[in-house]
Design a protein around this nucleic acid. Structure first.
Lengths: 192, 192
DNA sequence: ATCTATCCTGAACCATAGTTCACCTTGATG
DNA sequence: CATCAAGGTGAACTATGGTTCAGGATAGAT
């Protein structure tokens, strides 16, 4: 067992700066930001990007992975609240969807970039975590009689992937209103 | 008044071939197909593309315009059928949405290309035609008591723009099922 | 049949953006 | 401190893809 040397402190710092900058730049200027611009935003030279991520695809994949992890955390927190019994599962699920759509300016840009570059999310672990949590929410909602019995996790994914991310907030809210009834057992009441 | 000379026959033919090829290629290989590939698919040299469309953006804009025109025709036809009184407006609207989602492999790719290149659709005329027709369908459906009173054309646009185009047919169908209840006054019955 | 304006061709040009690499800096270990 | 390998730098290289243009072909009019 040869003792592996620990990575240098500034290297760790830079890696973090790069990921943050990449996320920010992709969100702000779309998937086509140059590596140069990401590097500039991170206050680092281009070469440093390539030291940490062999290719742009890898960099984007890392950003996506981080995003997925955040979503997974969110979903698990929601499920925990439901388990406490303090809130209805349907409400929690709706709120969760809302939050995702909220941040989804990022989501869209990042996902688009990922697709364009053919990047694999890499850590399917977090994806599964999110899926499991959402499945729990759905089951709970069905037990309450609020969520339609034929609804599955795939349906949530489907809606996810079609969220109107580049639209203004009002449109995103409206979208959520329009889409929710398909999951529930209740008809949607007309708004004022 | 100087008499403008009529365009040559082969030029007209080529223009059509180019538009068809561009549509096909963009649909098949995404927005990033090269001009070379489009030219090859059209059986024409690159220079010819540039004779008809000064820039790639213009070419894409033209393709989008054609697509919009087709959708407008479809919507108007649907409205006409409703006016006959032979079909319910809600059914016709749903069917219309279904058809759009059906062809929307094209839609998505083309729209994405348009957005990437910042192409203006150009003939807002056809867009208005589609909008007017859809508005008519909605009004009719509301008169029937089938469509929720707060639904507007913008809602339809919103759903349009979020159609899961790159998904397999089964997913698209399911999506339509999930989304429709938001428009109607009825709750969705669970599927088998 | 001839003529010419219109149209087509495709090799070459150029701008952009990802990627490399030879050289310099610096954090950590002794 | 002294040392050196890990880390950082940024000019230069390269691949890709939109765009141009000088020369050749052809539809259509006379």
């Amino acid at each position: 067992m040869t003792q592996a040397r620990a990575p240098r402190a500034d290297a760790v710092r830079n890696r973090k700066k790069i990921l943050t900058a990449a996320d920010g730049q992709i969100t702000a200027h779309g998937p086509d930001v140059g590596m140069d611009e990401i590097a500039a935003a991170a206050g680092v030279a281009v070469g440093t990007l390539y030291r940490h991520f062999p290719t742009k695809t890898d960099l984007v994949a890392a950003v996506v992975a981080e995003y997925v992890a955040r979503v997974a955390d969110d979903a698990e927190a929601a499920l925990a609240r439901v388990a406490d019994g303090s809130v209805r599962a349907l409400d929690e699920l709706t709120a969760f969807l809302g939050r995702v759509v909220e941040q989804s300016v990022t989501d869209r840009a990042v996902k688009a970039a990922a697709q364009t570059l053919g990047a694999e999310p890499g850590n399917r672990v977090d994806e599964d975590r999110a899926g499991t949590a959402v499945a729990g929410l759905i089951r709970a909602g069905q037990a309450d009689g609020d969520i339609n019995t034929d609804v599955t996790v795939n349906d949530i994914y489907l809606l996810f992937s079609t969220a109107p991310t580049d639209q203004p907030p009002a449109a995103r809210t409206r979208w959520l209103t329009l889409v929710t009834p398909g999951l529930t057992t209740q008809a949607r009441p007309a708004e004022s």
